[in-house]
Amino acid sequence: MGEHEPGETSAVTVAHPLVDFVGDGFVATVSDSPVVGLTEGRMGLLVDAARQSTRVLLITPPESRLTLAMTHYLQLLQGQWVIRNADGALRVAANGRVLQRLDDAWNDLDAAPIEVAADFAQPLVDAATWLQFTISTHHAARDETMLGRALEMISEEICGEAPTGWGVHEPAGIHWNRENLTRFVRGRMPRDTRLFATGGAMHPLSATLQVFRSAIGVTEETKILIALGSDRAVSEAVIARVPAVLAQIASTQQVLFGMAYEQSGAPDATFTAVQTSPPLPVASVIGARAIRDLNIDIDELERSFGAIRAGSRRVPSLVVPFGADPSQRWAQFAAGVGIVGAAQMHEALGLAVRATTGLNEQGSDNAS
C-alpha cells in the first residue's frame, strides 16, 4: 500500500488496504475482476479518499464491467475509471481517450467518445435493451411515511416481482422489506442516506436510493437500471407500457420529477467501457408542484404529446411520452422543452436535484 508507480509523484496517501499506488492528488486501486461492484471495501476507499480531498483512480483490464452502484459512487466522488491493456496502454473508460500519464485522467472530462480501438473495448455481442429511470418523490416527515414504493412499483410492473434485496453496499443482501428500509433511514435522520437495491430474475435490476431531509419534508431520489434482454419485440412491448407505469406512480406518490430512458448494454445491467449506445428519452413526469409553480400549459402538452394526467384533478402531475419511434424521441423531447420552456424545464429539474452535502459523514457511516 502506498507504493508509487514509475513516473508518478505522491501528494497524499490514504491509509486503506485497497490502495495499490498513489499519484499526484489521487490514489489508485487495481482490479482484474470481471465485474467491479461497490463492495464495503471499495466504498470505504472512496469515502476515505474524499475525506482527504483525494480522488480515486480505478484501473481495470478492458473486459471488466462496473455495477450501477460502483459507477454512481465513483462519479459522485469525482473518481475516474481507466482501462489498461495488456501492453500497458491506458485509456479513459468514459470516452476512450488515450493517456500518456495517469495524472491526466481528469483532463478533458467533457470530451466526446472517440472511435474505440479494437484492443480497447470490444462491442457487446449479446447486448440487451436497457430501461433507466430517475424518479424524485416528496414525502411528509411523518411516522407513517414509507420509502421505496417507486422502486417497488417499477420492479413489479417491469420485472414482474418486487426487488429482492437492499443494503448500504454491494452485494445488496438484506431481504427487501420497505418497513425495515424505512426504519433504517429514519434512524439516521437528519443525515443523508444512500442505499442500493437489486432484483429481477428475468430482467436484472440495479438501483440506488438517496434520501434526505428537505425544508418541507423528506425527498427520495431513485435511479433504476433494468436489462430487458435481447428480444427487441419483447423490449418494445415493455417500453410501450412505461408512460402508464409512470402515471401509476404519479397517482400514488408525490413525484417531483422523473425521466425514463432507453439504452443498450450488458445483459446483467453492468457498465462496459465507453457505452456506445446513447440514451433515448422514453417519457418524463412533471410533478404537480412544478405544474403549479411554473404555470405549465397542460392542455398544450396533451394535444401535442398525448400527455397523461395523474393524481389530483385540480393540479395533476403530467406524464409526457416521447413516441414509439426511437429515432424521433430526442426531437420530441426538444419539442416538449420548447412548449414548457427551457428555463421552466431547468427549474422543474431543479426541484428534484439537490447539491450533495454531508456526503463524507453519510458515506463513512455506511462504510463502517
Rank of each mutant, 00 (worst) to 15 (best):
V238E: 02
E220R: 05
E236W: 08
G165C: 10
E179N: 09
V238K: 00
F184A: 05
I291C: 04
A288Y: 09
W166H: 00
I216T: 03
E170T: 05
F212T: 00
T193S: 10
V185N: 01
T182Q: 01
H175L: 13
L181P: 03
I286Q: 03
Q254H: 10
A207S: 10
V185D: 03
V274N: 06
A244F: 13
A273G: 07
F257D: 01
A240L: 13
T276W: 10
T252M: 03
P171K: 07
P163Q: 08
H203Q: 15
C159Y: 13
V238F: 05
S235K: 13
Q263W: 12
H169S: 14
R194N: 05
R289N: 02
Q263K: 14
I216E: 00
T276A: 08
I158E: 07
A207V: 05
D268L: 02
R178H: 11
E236A: 15
H169W: 13
A227S: 11
F212V: 00
W176E: 02
V245G: 14
A240E: 15
G187N: 08
H203R: 15
T276Q: 12
L181V: 11
I158C: 13
V282C: 14
L225P: 07
G173C: 05
V274P: 03
S264Y: 13
D297S: 06
V274K: 02
A197T: 04
P190Q: 00
G199P: 00
I286W: 03
S214L: 00
V282L: 15
E179W: 09
A288Q: 08
W166P: 00
A240V: 14
A288G: 11
A201C: 09
P190F: 02
L256H: 02
T270I: 00
M259C: 07
